[in-house]
Amino acid sequence: MSWEAFANVVIKYWPMFLRGARNTLYISIVSTIIGSLIGLLIGVVRTIPIPERGFKKVLIKIVNAILTVYVEVFRGTPMIVQAMVIFYGSLMAFGIDMEPMFAGIFIVSINTGAYTAEIVRGGIISIDKGQFEAAHAIGMNHRKTMLYVVIPQVIRNILPAIGNEFVINIKDTSVLNVISVTELFFQTKTVVGINYKTFEAFTVASILYLIMTLTVTRILRFIEKRMDGPDNYVVIPGNQMQVARPEDLIKHNKGRQ
């Protein structure tokens, strides 16, 4: 091994690595977003209070049973196996020939959905009962309570966990090489197939993976901070303070910076 060999790999094959990294990032971003939306929807549906009787009770129970099966199946089997079953299975059993990229996004999305469904459910359960009661007490029904009070808090609270899912997705899209998605791992394998520089090529790949995950976590941390808003609030001077003294203005402005 030498620095020269490294440089050679990078100089010669950087467009391939870059294309792989781009696809990896693309699949993980789209899938994390779609998966989170699926998870949010399922989490909300699974926490609908069940009425004591009537048609609605039966309906909710059936839907919940189906969702439980979905969550358990996709959490309980490896994504690499799901990829094989869905991609080749749909072709052989139903004659559906999917684009590898589409199949990749589909698989990672429903997989992420199964995980985030539980994250969201946990997030909803952990919201203080008093928040629900206060919303009910001012006349909100369950839908309004969820929409205007609970879900905004849940989204803020589960953001770190969603970020975690995102990072996992960046790494786990590598399993999609089994269905020939041209993501980073697949591209690296291709490079190795040409020049047999296994160590060099995969070191480059791991550096690229690390750059992606570190960037993503930093960006998410920033978003979390933005959502929390400023640590201090501005006191609106009341009538008795309409004529502000210069020293108050200085204090006021300092508080804002």
């Binding site: 008093g130 928040q131 206060a134 919303a135 007490a137 006349g139 009070v149 808090q153």
Partner: peptide, 26 residues
């Protein structure tokens, strides 16, 4: 319930709204 105002022991202000928002959302 809109005809009854309820004040709780534990306040139960909506954490995702500021003071004005709490008084406006309902």
């Amino acid at each position: 319930r809109t005809k009854l105002g309820m004040v709780f022991q534990q306040f139960n202000l909506f954490n995702n709204h500021d003071v004005l928002g709490n008084c406006m959302i309902g």
